[in-house]
Simulated scan of single mutants.
Amino acid sequence: MNWRLFAWGGVAAAALFLTIGGGWLLTLPSRAASGNAPPIASQEGDATIAALKPPKRQRPLIAIVGINEQTETTDYLMPYGILKRADVADVVTLATRPGPVTLFPVLKVEPDATIAAFDAEHPDGADYVIVPAMRRDDDPVVVQWIRQQAQKGAIVIGVCVGTMVVASTGLLDGKRATTHWYSLKDLREKHPTIHYIRDRRIVVDQGVATTTGITASMPMSLTLVEAIAGREKAEAVARDIGLPHWDARHDSGAFQFTRPFALTAIGNTLAFWNKEQLGIALAPGIDEVSLALAADAWSRTYRSRTVTFAATAEAQPSRNGLRILPDQVAAQWPAERLLQPVGSLAPAQALDQTLLRIEARYGGRTADFVAMQLEYPRERVPD
Rank of each mutant, 00 (worst) to 15 (best):
H195S: 14
S304K: 03
T211C: 00
T48D: 11
R188E: 15
N36R: 13
G158R: 00
A41Y: 04
L278M: 14
L187R: 00
A371M: 04
R361I: 05
K233L: 12
T74P: 00
W8M: 11
P60W: 09
E336I: 07
A154P: 08
A331G: 15
P38I: 02
D173W: 06
A248G: 06
D247R: 05
D112H: 12
E375K: 02
L187M: 15
I40R: 08
D251A: 03
T93G: 14
G321C: 11
A167E: 06
R188F: 03
T212D: 07
E44W: 10
Q353L: 02
A229R: 02
F104D: 14
Y76H: 08
P79D: 13
P317K: 02
T71Y: 03
L270K: 06
T212Q: 10
A86H: 06
K275Q: 15
W246R: 08
G363W: 02
G285V: 13
T73E: 12
V88A: 05
A12K: 08
R59E: 12
A315P: 01
P79S: 10
F17P: 00
I40K: 04
G66D: 11
A209S: 07
D173I: 04
E189M: 04
P105F: 02
D112Q: 01
A350L: 08
G153K: 09
S344A: 14
A367W: 04
P341Y: 04
T269G: 10
V159S: 01
L52Y: 07
